[in-house]
Simulated assay, not measured.
Amino acid sequence: MIRVAIRENNMSGEPDPRGRIIYVSTVNFDQYCRDVIPNEWFPSWHPASLESGAIAVKMFAWYHHLHPVTVGGFTFDVDNTVNFQTYKAFSDQDATDRAYYRTRPLAFVQPSGEIFELNYRAGYENSPNWQYRNSQKMSQWGTQFLASQGRDFLQILQFYYVGRSLVQIPGVGKG
Rank of each mutant, 00 (worst) to 15 (best):
A147S: 05
R133K: 07
F116S: 09
P111T: 04
N10A: 05
D97F: 00
Y23E: 08
N119Y: 15
F76V: 12
I21T: 05
I6P: 02
P128G: 06
T75D: 11
N28D: 14
V36L: 04
D35Q: 05
N83D: 12
A122T: 14
T26F: 03
F90H: 14
I55H: 02
T75H: 04
E8C: 08
T75C: 06
L66W: 04
V82Y: 03
R18W: 10
V4W: 01
D79C: 08
A122Q: 15
S135G: 13
S44D: 13
Q131L: 08
T103Q: 03
I21N: 01
L146T: 03
N129M: 06
V78T: 12
V4I: 12
Y32L: 06
R104I: 02
T96R: 02
D35L: 00
L106N: 09
I21L: 14
D94V: 11
R7L: 09
A56L: 06
M138G: 11
E114I: 08
A122E: 13
L157M: 11
R34I: 00
V36C: 07
S44Q: 06
T70E: 15
S165A: 11
K137W: 13
I115R: 10
S139P: 13
T75I: 09
Q85V: 11
Y161A: 08
N28C: 04
P68L: 05
S127Y: 08
S139G: 12
N39S: 07
Q110L: 15
I169K: 13
V36Y: 01
I55V: 15
R151F: 13
S25P: 03
A147D: 01
K58V: 04
F116I: 10
F76G: 06
V57Y: 00
S165Q: 14
A61M: 08
R3Q: 05
G150N: 06
P17S: 08
Q140M: 08
P68R: 12
R151L: 12
A122N: 13
R18S: 11
S148H: 10
F74L: 14
R121K: 14
Q110S: 14
S91T: 13
I6G: 01
Y32M: 05
R7K: 09
E40I: 05
L66M: 10
A107F: 01
N39G: 10
F159N: 00
A95Y: 00
Q168T: 14
G73R: 12
I169Q: 09
M138A: 12
V109G: 03
D94L: 13
G13R: 01
Y160P: 08
I37Y: 00
L166I: 07
R3M: 04
G13E: 02
P170K: 05
H46I: 07
F145T: 05
N126P: 09
V27N: 00
S12P: 00
W45A: 01
F84C: 15
A99Y: 01
Y161D: 02
V78F: 00
I169A: 00
G19Q: 04
V82K: 13
I115V: 15
L118K: 03
P15W: 02
R104T: 02
I22Q: 09
N39E: 09
L146V: 05
Q140D: 11
Y23C: 07
W62H: 09
G53E: 07
H64M: 07
D30Q: 02
G175F: 15
F84E: 12
